[in-house]
Amino acid sequence: MTLLERFELGDIRALSRLISHIENRDTDFQKLLGRLYRRAGRSIRIGVTGPPGAGKSTLVNSLARLCLDDSQSVGIIAVDPTSPFTGGALLGDRVRMGDFPTDGSVFFRSMATRGASGGLASATDNVAILYDAFGFDITLIETVGVGQVELDIIDTCDIVVVVIVPESGDAVQMLKAGLMEIADVYCMNKADRPGAERLVADLRNTLQTQAMVRASATSEGKLSAHHHTLAGSEDSDATVPIIQTEAVNNKNIDTLHKAIFDHLKKIRESGFFEQDRRRRLRKKILSILSNRFQAEFVNGLASEDELDRAIDQIASGQSNPYDISAQLFEHFLNRN
C-alpha cells in the first residue's frame, strides 16, 4: 500500500511520513497536497504567538486538553528556530506535553523553521492542510516566539491568540511591535505576577482608543478594515478580549478556551471567517506562484559567470547594482 492509501485509512505513521515528504519538499509534494486537498477544509486553525517565556507551550497543551474533553481531535504544530549557522535545531516543545492519550486523538509535530523568518516554517501551512485532510477537528499552531513579531501566523490561522506576560512591557510598546494588529484574543498569562493588572488596564484602554480611531477612519474610508476587524461592523464592542490566565497552575484556561470559541462563533456568523479564508487562499496561490517563479526563472536570470562579471564592473566603478539589474532583466526578457 502507498503512504497516501494508508493515510486515507487513518494510519498515523503514514501521516507522519507524509509530513516529512512535505517538509523536505520531496518530488511531487505539491501533487500530493493537490490530491489531498479535497479532504481538507473542516479543521479550525488556532495560532498561538507571543514572546519567549510567555508560556505558549503550556497554554497550547492545556487548550488541547480542553478540546479533547469536548471530543474534538487535535493536531498540534510547534515551531522552533533552525540555527542559521549549523542548520540544526533543538525542538523542545514536547517537554511540556505531559501525559497525552496515545490513542491517536492528539497528534503533535515539532517543526524547525529551516530558514523561514516569519515565525513559522515555510511548510507549516501545508502540514496544517495535511492535518485537516487527516481529520483533526482542531489544529493548534505555536510560533517560534523569539521576540520579534511573527506575522506568518495571520496568514495561516483562523484565530490568533497573542500571549503576553507582565514583563512584555507596556501597551505602547506592544502597539509599536505590531502585536495589537494581529490578536483576536489576548491571553495575559502569569496574571498572578506584579504588574499584570496594570498592563491589562493599560492594554484595554489602548485597544478601546484604537477601536474608536479605526471605526471613524473606516467610516471615512481612510483606512481599510484590518485583518480580523470586519469592515462595516456595527459591533461597537469590537475590542479584542483580554483573558488573564496562569497556565502553570492551569487557572482560567477554560475561560481562554471559551473566548476563542466565542470569537469563532462570532466571525462565522458575521461572515468574516469565510472572507478571511478567501483572503488567505488568494495569498496562498500567489505564494505558490511566486515560489514556482523563483525556482524556475529567477535562478535563470543570470548565471554565476554573468554575476561575477557584473560585480567586477561595479567594483571597478563602471556600473552600479541598479543599472546592472535592469540590464540583466532586459536580457532575460529578450532571451525568453
Binding site: P52, G53, S57, T58, L90, G92, V95, R96, G98, N250
Partner: peptide
C-alpha cells in the same frame, strides 16, 4: 497542586 514539568526554555543550550 498539579505536577511539575521542566519548561522548554530550560533545555535551550
Amino acid at each position: 497542586w498539579g505536577e511539575w514539568n521542566e519548561s522548554k526554555s530550560a533545555m535551550q543550550v
